[in-house]
């Protein structure tokens, strides 16, 4: 029985990055939506942070599934959010080649750029899917509040990263 709990704890720790992405989505739907809507791309906070620090714990296949989950929740064409999420991790992968040891400010600026690229790409994608140009002005507000909110999610995620020593686990684990 004890063995089971140890294994269960291990699974939870290993899946913390994915759980964080889901948590951010649920936070927006259940808590913040009524007074401040961060939009469906709040999940990018988690994806960005965890893909930089623990890429082995957040493989692209999981990101594809998380994107599909978002599509199901928000009634969007299946695969559309996955495509944007995968685009974001490709950008993060390229970004990681430039930055060997990024500071917080560098990370924040990079997040702002990647987030903006992703949200505008999604706008273009959804306009293309619907054969109709969707309004662009709400995107600016959503981008702004997400960039503003990023330091909070960063500190929150960083706490768990250090608490459970996930970077060490990431180095050991080869997914």
């Amino acid at each position: 029985m004890l063995n089971f709990f140890i294994k269960f704890k291990q699974i939870i720790i290993y899946s913390l990055p994915s759980l964080f992405v889901i948590l951010f989505t649920l936070f927006n739907i259940a808590v913040s939506k009524s007074f401040l809507d961060f939009g469906l791309f709040i999940a990018l906070h988690g994806i960005f942070f965890w893909f930089i620090h623990t890429p082995n714990l957040l493989p692209p296949l999981i990101i594809l599934i998380l994107g599909l989950l978002q599509d199901i929740i928000y009634l969007l064409p299946l695969g559309s959010t996955s495509l944007i999420f995968l685009l974001s991790i490709m950008l993060i992968q390229i970004y990681k080649e430039f930055f060997l040891e990024p500071s917080f400010l560098e990370t924040w600026i990079s997040f702002s750029i990647i987030f903006s690229v992703c949200i505008f790409s999604s706008w273009a994608l959804f306009s293309l899917i619907n054969y109709n140009i969707t309004p662009i002005t709400p995107i600016f507000f959503e981008t702004f509040i997400n960039i503003l909110f990023f330091p909070f999610t960063y500190v929150f995620s960083y706490f768990f990263l250090t608490k459970f020593q996930l970077e060490k686990i990431n180095k050991k684990k080869n997914v």
Partner: peptide
């Protein structure tokens, strides 16, 4: 960012995996 040198070791098959999954996403769409 461009002041940093490219670390070619990181340039791995993961980009190819991502591109492959992106193609799958497009097919699903």
């Amino acid at each position: 960012p461009l002041l940093y040198k490219r670390n070619k070791n990181i340039y791995s098959s993961s980009i190819l995996t991502i591109i492959f999954l992106m193609i799958i996403s497009v097919i699903i769409i």
